[in-house]
């Protein structure tokens, strides 16, 4: 488990002036922020805003063209948008394989812990290809947590799930944050950001337009009680569209 005594004021992830270009298109420009232990940070924005690019750079899948990312000791967990699993292997075989590849101390103990945490113990021997989308996503999240990382990145984790599955997934993610894991997630369902995140980052065309609590975004957007309306209004007034 990551250390519960980690100070919540100390950033576990710092991003400075991050930039990324794809040819002539600027996908990210001068993005800076920090994430703290136990914090749930939502990255929201319209399609093509740069959410997935930002998370894939933080995960180390892509390299930035400029800027830096620093982190505390320990790997960064990553849960890609689409489940990255071997469909011909069972749940347990997937978890055991990646535990061994990550060279965790006791793969079998980690496997048992992850099965218990994700509630998939009864389905451990079922092949991933036979699982529902929700359960596949749970295994996907479990793989991101194998090394007990201080920070976990989730790229649109609920996009393929039905409402009940989404509810269970967010309960699981909230429990992670409660145990001190810093959670950075992207979503295009802005209501989820308002409901679960302590802070939201608003990206539009690669630029960071807002970094603060959901309530502040509502105030700046002037949407009253409706977070989604406030978000759209904010983009209209501050965004490039």
């Amino acid at each position: 488990m990551n250390s519960p005594e980690r100070s919540k004021d100390e950033p576990v992830l710092s991003v400075r002036s991050l930039g990324k270009r794809y040819g002539s298109r600027e996908a990210l420009r001068d993005v800076s922020f920090a994430a703290h232990a136990g914090e749930m940070l939502a990255v929201i924005g319209p399609n093509g805003a740069g959410k997935t690019t930002l998370l894939s750079i933080l995960a180390g899948v892509q390299a930035p063209n400029s800027g830096s990312v620093s982190r505390t000791a320990g790997e960064i967990g990553w849960v890609p948008q689409q489940p990255a699993l071997y469909s011909k292997l069972s749940v347990a075989e997937n978890l055991r394989l990646f535990a061994r590849l990550e060279r965790v101390g006791d793969p079998d103990a980690v496997l048992a812990r992850m099965l218990a945490q994700t509630g998939l113990a009864e389905r451990a021997d079922e092949r991933v290809e036979t699982l529902s989308g929700g359960n596949q996503q749970r295994v996907n999240v479990a793989l991101g947590l194998l090394g007990d990382p201080p920070t976990i990145l989730l790229d649109e984790p609920s996009s393929a799930l039905d409402p009940a599955q989404r509810e269970r997934l967010w309960e699981f993610i909230a429990a992670l944050a409660a145990r001190g894991t810093s959670v950075v997630f992207s979503t295009h369902v802005v209501a989820e950001a308002a409901r679960y995140a302590r802070r939201v980052l608003v990206l539009d065309e690669g630029s960071l337009l807002f970094d603060g609590a959901p309530e502040e975004l509502v105030r700046e957007g002037g949407g009253g009680e409706d977070f989604e309306r406030a978000f759209v209004s904010f983009l209209r007034t501050r965004g490039r569209a």
Binding site: S17, V61, S68, S70, R71, A73, I76, W78, A84, L85
Partner: peptide, 27 residues
């Protein structure tokens, strides 16, 4: 199976561009 990126990614650290010596020391 979308596993390639999971297998070959490297968590950011000293390899990142423009990183300061201070940040390198942090991991």
């Amino acid at each position: 199976e979308h596993v390639l990126a999971r297998l070959t990614r490297r968590s950011p650290g000293t390899s990142m561009r423009g990183e300061s010596p201070a940040s390198r020391s942090r991991g």
